[in-house]
Design a binder for these strands. Structure first.
Lengths: 95, 95
DNA sequence: TAAAAACATCGAAATATTTAGATATTCAAA
DNA sequence: TTTGAATATCTAAATATTTCGATGTTTTTA
């Protein structure tokens, strides 16, 4: 359960979101109703597998995505709590 | 009046927020009840004036801050609409 | 009008990020 | 148990960002 993010976490999340590929990854995963597999995400982009892996890692380390390893596959869902907490942090700038 | 942000704008805003100094600048300006002057912001940090100017420029170009030049001084307020629109974009990942 | 204050811009060094290829690991299926 | 599929890690090059000092611009004030 996330109550509030600290400034370091907000910085990390912002950095993770500051890239066109990673934003598109978030969009794809958020718009899918079920879990999305790593290789399905990769197929959408014209990037090397290692590059994709690197982008996904950043989103996971920022807690924006939750990864679930099933056998040799990796599935993702959006971390709704972190998205909400981050959004709140930013919208509070406007209060 | 901002209705919705496009992905390029979201990327730019995220990049602007992905730095500890710029996050602190946003906090300082958002927490002040009146406009904040550039030199007041600079005084809070141990950074060269040109560096400060660069950080503020990024926040302004991302539309997170609105700058108002009064004589030789520059005053800021938070762009509430953009903060809200950005927060919505991100929190929508969790829907 | 000369000096100073507030901010912007330029150029360059230091640092960080992005990307791909090569290789390693881990699990599944033949 | 060997092969292949999915993903991770390492290394290195290309690119981008951060930072500062020097200098430029604009406006205020002495």
């Amino acid at each position: 359960m996330i109550t509030e993010l600290n400034i370091k976490q907000v910085e990390k999340i912002s950095k993770a979101l500051g890239d066109p590929y990673r934003l598109k990854i978030m969009k794809i995963i958020s718009q899918s109703d079920s879990c999305v597999q790593c290789c399905d995400v990769s197929a959408e982009f014209n990037l090397a597998q290692s590059t994709m892996s690197h982008h996904l890692k950043q989103l996971i380390e920022a807690d924006l995505l939750i990864a679930d390893k099933e056998g040799r596959n990796l599935k993702f869902v959006v971390n709704k709590e972190v998205c909400a907490a981050y959004a709140k942090y930013i919208s509070d700038f406007g209060l």
